[in-house]
């Protein structure tokens, strides 16, 4: 949408992390256009359902194509877009509920196929749009409308999950660091394979954890989020595993598979064995002669 559509009245709450993520995405798409020479219409934003998915309507400036589908299905929709049109730059925007709960079943297949898309996951550890229910990343014991006596499941570690399932590019960011986050998104778009940028994007209404993430020296609170040191080698899978399990929220590129070969390339190679026939030829293969 352009900023002129006054009919559209959805708003993020003041202070929502998704504002920062949007700005980062705008930077990353602008960089992509500069670096590849593609037009803005060559980028497709695939939105999940939830507060974060509304980003597809809220992007400012020149408009990419968008599809705002159904809950949890950003990956299979992207699968059809990207494999139908490998020339397109496909970017997913979804939240932790959409991607990690209802949409969980789709991560493994796309990671194994190494579908060449970029997924930007905004994690606020809560279902915001439906007013504060628990999500897969909500901590054990937390009280929400659907866990009135405290959540009895542990919180999922999404980064660990992505690594286990075989994503070939995994980065972790935070919505307050707009330029660095935009940079992670750019790297993800340029990565030839399945790339996830998992973003801490707090919900100021239902789960305001800015202070926990960034720390508060006045209260003697150390930040939970920390920058991954420059010496980390993201191509080292074991090192990536150590980073993920070092506690807190690591920020930066966690894993990047070397020589990543995306699905569209693999299909092309597999089809080198195929003998493509015209419809006439195919029909002829069922032909028989009456003697």
């Amino acid at each position: 949408m352009t900023s002129k559509n006054e009919e559209y009245d959805f708003k993020w709450c003041p202070g929502c992390g998704d504002f920062g993520v949007r700005r980062s995405l705008e930077y990353a798409v602008a960089d992509w256009i500069t670096q590849t020479g593609q037009s803005i219409e060559n980028t497709v934003v695939v939105a999940g359902i939830g507060c974060s998915g509304n980003m597809v309507h809220l992007l400012e400036g020149p408009q990419p194509f968008g599809i705002h589908g159904i809950h949890g299905r950003t990956l299979p929709i992207s699968f059809g877009i990207k494999m139908g049109r490998p020339d397109l730059n496909v970017v997913i925007v979804a939240g932790d509920g959409d991607f990690l709960s209802i949409g969980m079943e789709h991560i493994a297949p796309q990671a194994q196929r190494n579908l060449n898309v970029t997924a930007i996951i905004m994690d606020n550890a809560v279902y915001g749009l439906t007013k504060g229910q628990s999500s897969p990343t909500t901590d054990m014991g937390v009280v929400t409308p659907t866990t009135p006596y405290g959540k009895v499941e542990g919180a999922l570690n999404p980064l660990d999950l992505y690594l286990t399932l075989g994503a070939s590019f995994i980065a972790s960011g935070i919505s307050t660091k707009i330029r660095p986050l935009g940079n992670l998104m750019s790297q993800a778009m340029h990565h030839p394979g399945f790339a996830i940028v998992h973003v801490q994007s707090p919900c100021t209404t239902y789960n305001d954890n800015y202070e926990i993430l960034k720390g508060n020296p006045k209260k003697g609170m150390a930040p939970v989020a920390w920058d991954i040191p420059a010496e980390h080698d993201p191509t080292d899978r074991a090192a990536a595993h150590r980073v993920i399990h070092s506690g807190g929220i690591p920020l930066g590129v966690i894993y990047k598979q070397e020589n990543s070969k995306p699905l569209d390339k693999r299909m092309g190679e597999a089809w080198a064995k195929a003998r493509t026939q015209s419809v006439e030829q195919l029909l002829d293969s069922f032909l028989f002669k009456v003697s």
Partner: peptide, 14 residues
């Protein structure tokens, strides 16, 4: 579920 969403994506992409 993946099949239908994938073909919707492809249909959208032309």
């Amino acid at each position: 579920i993946e099949s239908i969403n994938a073909i919707v994506g492809a249909g959208f992409a032309g």
